[in-house]
Design a protein around this nucleic acid. Structure first.
Lengths: 153, 153
DNA sequence: CCATATTCAGAAAAATTTGCTGATAGTTCT
DNA sequence: AGAACTATCAGCAAATTTTTCTGAATATGG
């Protein structure tokens, strides 16, 4: 399997929306039997098209209603500094996403917290402890309009 | 079950990392048998702590290697304008996340695309077609440092 | 202290996954 | 065109997992 055919793509589209469907249910949608679908999913997993399967939880129910987005610029941009920064960011459990960006801002962070007060604490006790942060700009989510793990293809 | 006990929390922590574990495997980690774990998961699903189960796919393998982050400010901020904007954004399959923000920027968008050229096309043919956009600032991800669906609790 | 409700373990039934076999279709080479 | 090879698929059977049920143990509240 060098290239994916339309059946593979359909399977991936289905699984990224709902990973709890049985192979039989997927097979029915595709007018196939369970075994070819089963074999294809195994291949897609092995080849790395499917990275993993996860449960998506309700942030608010778990008392993490605040989402902050944080834009960080470093003071110095040597290779070593960037690597250290990345390493330290990964230690912070509050950080769900971190991207190294092109442009005037170096990093984007998405952070989930219990409250605005906890964000203050987070910045005070954790972020500000990281060396080499130049500028730190914070934004807060008023409302999640749309948030999916799905990608369109 | 009004409040979650430590066992429930542990189950949720496990499932958001790997939803493919069997109830038996989870039960072993918690030194329980399968049935109580099974029943707890069902309850967590029904009560909405678990929203859904999804497969996480490899963006690059599926030819969506470019992630753009886009900050949008509206020209007018009447209720109607905001609602329309939200509705139109949800139609764009390239947009994976959209947040209404507090502050000088109104919306954050995370967008997955085939190439920088496709971003140009996306802005030209889709984003710019949306009425009422005042300022549009684009950022591109150089490197994904960290990206998880997990939340810490 | 008793009644009620909740949680848990174990067993059994139902459903699903997984592995295997043979048939079919598509490809390549001669 | 035809033979050999490969990949894909359907169907079946075994192994595993999910799901349901029952009764015991524990906690809760009056």
């Amino acid at each position: 399997m060098e290239i994916l055919d339309e059946t593979d793509l359909k399977i991936l589209r289905i699984l990224q929306e709902n990973a709890k469907l049985t192979t039989k249910e997927i097979a029915d949608q595709l007018h196939l039997t369970a075994s070819p679908v089963y074999e294809r999913i195994r291949r897609l997993e092995k080849k790395g098209y499917i990275k993993n399967y996860v449960a998506i939880l309700d942030k608010k129910k778990l008392n993490r209603p605040v989402t902050a987005i944080c834009m960080v610029s470093l003071r110095y941009h040597n290779e070593g500094f960037i690597d250290t920064f990345e390493k330290q960011i990964k230690e912070l459990v509050e950080v769900q996403e971190c991207y190294h960006m092109a442009g005037k801002v170096d990093f984007f962070l998405k952070i989930h917290l219990e409250s605005l007060e906890m964000y203050h604490e987070f910045v005070r006790t954790k972020l500000s402890k990281i060396q080499n942060i130049g500028v730190l700009e914070s934004y807060f989510v008023l409302k999640e309009i749309y948030n999916t793990t799905t990608i369109a293809f």
